[in-house]
Design a protein around this nucleic acid. Structure first.
Lengths: 213, 213
DNA sequence: ACCTGAACACCGTTCAAGT
DNA sequence: ACCTGAACACCGTTCAAGT
């Protein structure tokens, strides 16, 4: 079976999910594919481009169902949850997806749908873009927390083995809320935030004239 | 002058800001300090720990002024903006700060202040933690976009040299809003989102009994 | 206690040689 | 057109030797 780009990308994704993003190297992927390390360069210009391919592939695997007739609130909710699938299905690739500029159609499709939804909610172009950016920022930040790369700021090991508690005098609120800070139902927290955002933009005033073009 | 941990961390930060996070290596830092590569290991267990030190150092350099007597809205705004200073003063270190779990006091201090503020706004422990997480997610996501690592989903090179426009038939909204998607006033967008969030949590219902302890 | 050079097991990528 | 081994310039980290 001849080597090709998508075989390489798939091998990379598999390796990332198996051993983490740090384990990715051209040589390891080549070995997984039972091929010389240099063979990869016939299908991919370099490692950075390969990781970009990984990001695109993961992103394009999201199931973005969208019902244009549904209320815009439902559509936003569904699109946000679709995005969160990444963290479920490709947890260790999430960082790769989220830390890369995407200019391919794989990245443009979700944007197109989100903008369509926000326009249908009555926002003009300016505000639709603004709202989209807020959602993306929130979703990206949430996924990073969920995937465990981003700071949770939780005093994790606090009372683990040692009595190494957070000093209640210095950090009264942190130590009081330590149990809450340490645990997190990602699904629930994500939804809570999305609902808050939906509610927030729902009450945001629309301009008189909706379109710009 | 004897080598010590903070000299190493500072050299790492300087190197990151000068040449980017990818340029960081134990050997490069050692060379910058005019010291053998292995000398670093007398003060830092390994590279990962060093980067953790970088994250803490950058975070601890934020000026978190806080006026406990100010209205909670103002305090939240100020704390959010303080956080965003990272992206301004240490743009290329932002990814390092944001992609690492922090359990030191450097990470706990901002949390303590944020929780104090949210409690003073009338939230019980549960909701204070929830609201904090939403803000952190939004801020982290926004900083990553600002720093240019996270997907902007902007069709950047669209009409650059070639007539390689986005197909308006496939992506009507994207191509219509392309100019807006391509440019972004980070300061303004960040503020817009923070104000939206503040407004959203301001109208969120508080529970009868505020405290848990 | 702190520094260090040599060494080991890795990297990404270029290049010239093969088919 | 596609594959590849050797080679180059790098990595992080261990270890034993120095002071």
């Amino acid at each position: 079976m001849p080597l090709n780009r998508s075989m390489i990308v798939d091998a990379a994704i598999a390796l990332i999910e198996r051993e983490g993003a740090d384990a990715v190297s051209m040589r390891r992927i080549a070995a997984d594919l039972q091929v010389g390390a240099m063979s990869l360069y016939n299908h991919v210009p370099n490692k950075a481009a390969l990781l970009e391919g990984v990001a695109e592939a993961v992103l394009s695997k999201i199931e973005f169902r969208d019902d244009p007739d549904a209320p815009w609130r439902d559509r936003v909710r569904m699109q946000a949850h679709a995005f969160r699938q990444i963290a479920h299905h490709y947890p260790r690739s999430t960082m790769v997806v989220v830390s890369r500029q995407l200019h391919s159609t794989a990245g443009l499709l979700p944007v197109e749908r989100a903008l369509a939804t926000l326009r249908s909610a009555g926002f003009d172009g300016d505000d639709a873009v603004r709202m989209l950016r807020i959602f993306i920022a929130y979703i990206v930040g949430s996924l990073l927390r969920e995937v465990g790369v981003t700071p949770t700021f939780a005093p994790t090991h606090m009372q683990s083995v040692v009595g190494q508690d957070v000093d209640p005098a210095l950090f009264p609120h942190v130590s009081e809320l330590a149990p809450l800070l340490r645990q997190c139902d990602h699904e629930e927290e994500f939804e809570f935030g999305i609902e808050l955002l939906i509610q927030a933009i729902a009450v945001h005033p629309r301009r008189r004239r909706q379109g710009t073009v």
